[in-house]
C-alpha cells in the first residue's frame, strides 16, 4: 500500500485576516516498506502534513491517495481508510483514558468493530511489539506508569489497529536517552518486520540511525528528498532550512576539508569508526 500526496496545498483560516498557507503544492509518495523521516524547523508544516496522511485534515487543493483511492473522494469510507494509516501524535500519552492498559489499547480495534477474540489477540500482539509484558501491565492503570511506558502504551493503541503505515510525530520528544533509545529500537524492529514508517523528527542523529529516506520541509514546501547520505551531504541546503546535519556528517566534512581521505557523505558514527580505523591501519601496518 502506498500513500500519495498530489499537489497538496493547505490553507488555514481561508478568507480571514489570519489566513496562512501551511502547505504549498506538496507532492510526495510514501513507498511500501520504507522508513521516511520528515524533517524541518518548527512551523514548517510537518504536523499539518502528517494530519493529511490519514484524512484528519482535508487539503485546500490537491489529492491524498491511499491505496489509489482518493481519501476525500465520493463514496469512500474515510474512517476505514483512516485506520490503514496509524497516526501517533506528539506526546501520545496524553490521549490515554481507560482504566487499564489493555482496555486503552483495545479502544482502536473496538472502534473497528472487531470481535472480542480478535481484539484480545491484537492487544497482546501490540503489547509484545512495544515490549510491554502482558502479565505485568495489562490490568494496570495507564496513569500509574512512567512517562516512557505510557508512551509505549499509546503507540501500542495505534499498532493494535494493525495499520499498514505507521506515522509518528516526534515519538521521542521529552524522553530521557534511555526511553528514547527504547522507542527508536522498537521502531527499527517494526520497520524490519515490514511496517512502513513515517517519522517526524528534530533529531538528525536519530534520523541518521534509522531512516531509509529523508524529506526536508521549509516554510510549507518540500525542498528536498533523498537518502540520508544525499540529504546530509547538502549542508548548505540543510542550514537554509534551519537544520543541522548529524555530528558524524559534520566530522566527515571537516576532516575531508583538512585532507583526511574519507569518502564523501558519511553520516553515522559507525561508518566513521570503520573508515577511520581502516585509515589508521593503513598508516600503521604493524
Amino acid at each position: 500500500m502506498s500513500i500519495e500526496l498530489r499537489n497538496v496545498t493547505h490553507v488555514y483560516a481561508e478568507g480571514s485576516a489570519f489566513r496562512s498557507v501551511a502547505l504549498e503544492d506538496i507532492s510526495l509518495t510514501i513507498e511500501d516498506g520504507e522508513f521516511l523521516a520528515l524533517v524541518g524547523h518548527t512551523g514548517c508544516g510537518k504536523s499539518t502534513l502528517v494530519q493529511h496522511l490519514n484524512g484528519l485534515l482535508k487539503p485546500s487543493s490537491g489529492q491524498v491517495l491511499v491505496d489509489g483511492q482518493d481519501l476525500h473522494g465520493e463514496h469512500v469510507n474515510r474512517r476505514l481508510l483512516r485506520m490503514k494509516v496509524g497516526l501517533v501524535f506528539q506526546y501520545p500519552e496524553y490521549q490515554l483514558f481507560e482504566e487499564t492498559v489493555a482496555k486503552d489499547i483495545a479502544f482502536g480495534p473496538k472502534n473497528m468493530g472487531l470481535g472480542a477474540d480478535e481484539i484480545d489477540r491484537r492487544v497482546r500482539s501490540a503489547m509484545a511489539q512495544m515490549h510491554l509484558d502482558y502479565q505485568k501491565y495489562a490490568e494496570r492503570s495507564p496513569f500509574e506508569l512512567s512517562g516512557g511506558q505510557m508512551r509505549r502504551v499509546a503507540i501500542a493503541g495505534i499498532l493494535a489497529m494493525e495499520p499498514q503505515t505507521l506515522v509518528l510525530d516526534e515519538p521521542t520528544a521529552g524522553l530521557d536517552p534511555h526511553g528514547r533509545d527504547r522507542i527508536l529500537g522498537i521502531l527499527r524492529e517494526l520497520h524490519e518486520k515490514g511496517t512502513t514508517i513515517v517519522m517526524v523528527s528534530h533529531s538528525m542523529d536519530d534520523v541518521a540511525r534509522l531512516a531509509t529516506r529523508v524529506a526536508v520541509m521549509s516554510h510549507g514546501k518540500l525542498i528536498a528528498t533523498g537518502t540520508p547520505r544525499e540529504v546530509f551531504s547538502r549542508q548548505d541546503m540543510m542550514e537554509n532550512a534551519g537544520l543541522r546535519i548529524p555530528e558524524a556528517a559534520r566530522l566527515c566534512q571537516s576532516l575531508r576539508q583538512r585532507g583526511v581521505p574519507l569518502p564523501d557523505g558519511l553520516f553515522t558514527l559507525e561508518e566513521l569508526r570503520t573508515h577511520l580505523s581502516a585509515l589508521w591501519r593503513e598508516a600503521h601496518p604493524c
Partner: peptide, 19 residues
C-alpha cells in the same frame, strides 16, 4: 542509562581499535 556526547563515544570506539 545515560549517553555521552557523540564524539566522546566515537573516540572511545576508536581507542579500542588502537588509535
Amino acid at each position: 542509562h545515560l549517553d555521552v556526547p557523540h564524539m566522546t563515544a566515537l573516540a572511545a570506539e576508536l581507542r579500542k581499535e588502537g588509535i
